[in-house]
Design a protein around this nucleic acid. Structure first.
Length: 507
RNA sequence: GCCGGUAUCGUCUAGGGGUCAGGACACGUGGUUCUCAGCCACGGGACCGGGGUUCGAAUCCCCGUACCGGUACCA
């Protein structure tokens, strides 16, 4: 007998960008669903009308898809358990509240907000738990009905049973127990008729037949309230798994002041989706055999909730960068080229790339990508192509002094390239360099470094064997959407002229 | 305050009554290369504290501490 397939859900609130902590929760749900042949549902928890926006919802969905996470039922996908937006389920919450009211599990509460606030402060001051006093619990149904009918504002509260333990076996943490004495009667329906979180989740998870709730640890103390609700309805609760939260380097919750926190920001900085997903899976979980660089598809087969760590994890951008480098090195050339285009555009180096431009970029961007952390950094690595200036290079003291003491190499290079054809491949470049060596007697660093300075305008960068042919290929680009790339010959001539204008080095 | 959770190198983790406490990122040193990055090799670096149980505790138990979460008509 095979067990029923599991049903999981990810239920974000569309109140901002998708945070990496939530992305990790989504990923864990996805890994388990895909690894077990289960169903993943995407539900939108937009009952907070003030803060929910449809742009946020769109952004979150986009970020999820970008990371490679898909879902089987839910928003923009449909399914038999919809609607999947809480704002479209209000009638369902009302109907079930009526049922709870009838069964005596819930009651109307007319306490004004200021009263509640005062109670709360008094309780805190007296060292008591600041839970709802229960003032309206004793109201008779008739009295409550009259007051409601007379137009008085009311919320519907759940009647939490007194002095009982509520326990559950959390899949990641083990048995967790709360006593109901510390739980105030939670609001089910607000005075405007909209459902509160703890109520809506229960109705939705139950009606959507969710079998496993994987969510952040911040929800662990909501769980007993929700369990009580399941009990009142006579429903069987799902299994719960609370995963720890993601922290910043200072061990406080990851926030803006730590830098990027949302999936969209990491994407904008040029992290690859497969790298972010791989890294996030490793934060709080490990396959156990020491392997770390595994695509999510493989991780899914290995993932077990029981193996998820109990403690909060610090988000380590350095390690993410390492994972990203790995995927950068194996990414398809044309994909990298296209990913890099927006960054070039931002620099004003490219307008609209032609097919030839993309072919050119597909040659050189992957080389640059092998030595950077994120696609964003490709511009610094390839600035020598599009942003060459001999005079600007020679403004840098270190470059100027080295160039001045290497005038022989620079002059010989300019002369040599003036008579040679373009250095379109490694061997042609090496041949030219060999002739400069013969003419000057310089070799090794004393030969190549000045050549680097003259041809790239930079003291460091890609190896010349690929940089120089790339310069020539860029210079040969015919009708192009790329800013003109000066050839090696032009560069050498310009650089030599600038150096000779400088005169001899100061003693 | 009260309730709940958590605790192995700086970070992510493996392990778990007797181990040289293993790996990865980061860091340091050396090598490779015209340079930076990379890559390779080597190296330093941890069981929160105190009690208890035990021949033996990082591992089991208790207490404490620290941190995180909750204590909402936010989710």
């Amino acid at each position: 007998m095979t067990p029923d397939p599991i049903r999981l859900r990810f239920a974000p609130s569309p109140t901002g960008q998708l945070h990496v902590g939530n992305a990790r929760t989504a990923l864990f749900n996805w890994l388990l669903a895909r690894g077990s042949g289960g169903t993943l549902i995407l539900r939108i928890e937009d009952t907070d009308v003030e803060r929910s926006t449809s742009e946020s919802e769109r952004g979150i969905l986009e970020d999820l898809r970008w990371m490679g996470l898909d879902w089987d039922e839910g928003v923009e996908r449909g399914g038999t358990h919809g609607p999947y937006r809480q704002s479209e389920r209000l009638h369902i919450y009302r109907a079930h509240a009526v049922e709870l009211l009838a069964g005596g599990h819930a009651y109307h509460c007319f306490c004004p907000a200021r009263q509640l606030e005062a109670d709360r402060e008094a309780a805190l001051a007296a060292g008591r738990p600041p839970k709802y006093s229960g003032r309206c619990r004793l109201l008779t149904k008739d009295e409550a009905r009259h007051r409601v009918e007379s137009g008085e504002q009311a919320v519907i509260r759940f009647r939490v049973p007194d002095a009982r333990d509520v326990s559950f076996d959390d899949i990641v943490r083990g048995r967790v127990t709360f006593n109901t004495d510390v739980i105030g009667d939670p609001v089910l329906l607000r005075s405007d008729g909209s459902p509160a979180y703890n109520y809506a989740v229960v109705i939705d998870d139950a009606l959507m037949e969710i079998t496993h709730v994987i969510r952040g640890e911040d929800h662990i103390s909501n769980t007993p309230r929700q369990l009580l609700l399941y009990e009142a309805f006579g429903w069987r609760p799902p299994a719960f798994a609370h995963v720890s939260l993601v922290m910043g380097p200072d061990h406080s919750p990851l926030s803006k002041r730590h830098g990027a926190t949302s999936v969209a920001e990491f994407r904008a900085r040029g992290f690859l989706p497969e790298a972010l997903a791989n890294y996030l899976a490793l934060l709080g979980w490990s396959p156990g055999d020491g392997r770390e660089l595994l695509p999510v598809g493989e991780l899914a087969a290995l993932f077990r909730l029981e193996d998820v760590g109990h403690s909060a994890g610090v988000f380590d951008v350095e390690k993410l960068a390492w994972v990203n480098r790995h995927y950068l090195k194996s990414a398809a050339p044309e994909r990298l080229a296209r990913l890099a285009v927006p960054y070039f555009q931002r620099e004003g180096w490219i307008a609209d790339p032609t097919d030839a431009d993309v072919r050119f970029l597909s040659q050189i961007v992957p080389v640059a990508a092998a030595s950077i952390d994120r696609v964003e950094q490709v511009t610094a690595r390839l600035a020598f192509l599009f942003d060459y200036s001999a005079s600007r290079a020679l403004d840098v003291p270190g470059i100027r002094s080295e160039a001045q003491s290497s005038r022989d190499v620079i002059a010989a290079l300019a002369d040599e390239l003036g008579r040679a054809g373009p250095l379109l491949d490694r061997d042609t470049f090496r041949g030219a360099a060999a002739r400069v060596r013969e003419r000057t007697g310089q070799k090794g660093r004393a030969l190549f470094h000045p050549i680097r300075l003259a041809l790239t305008g930079e003291a460091e960068g890609l190896e010349l064997d690929v940089a120089v042919p790339a310069i020539e290929a860029g210079a040969a680009l015919q009708p192009s959407g790329i800013r003109r790339v000066p050839s090696a010959r032009e560069r050498a001539a310009e650089f030599a002229r600038c150096v000779s204008d400088l005169g001899p080095p100061e003693a």
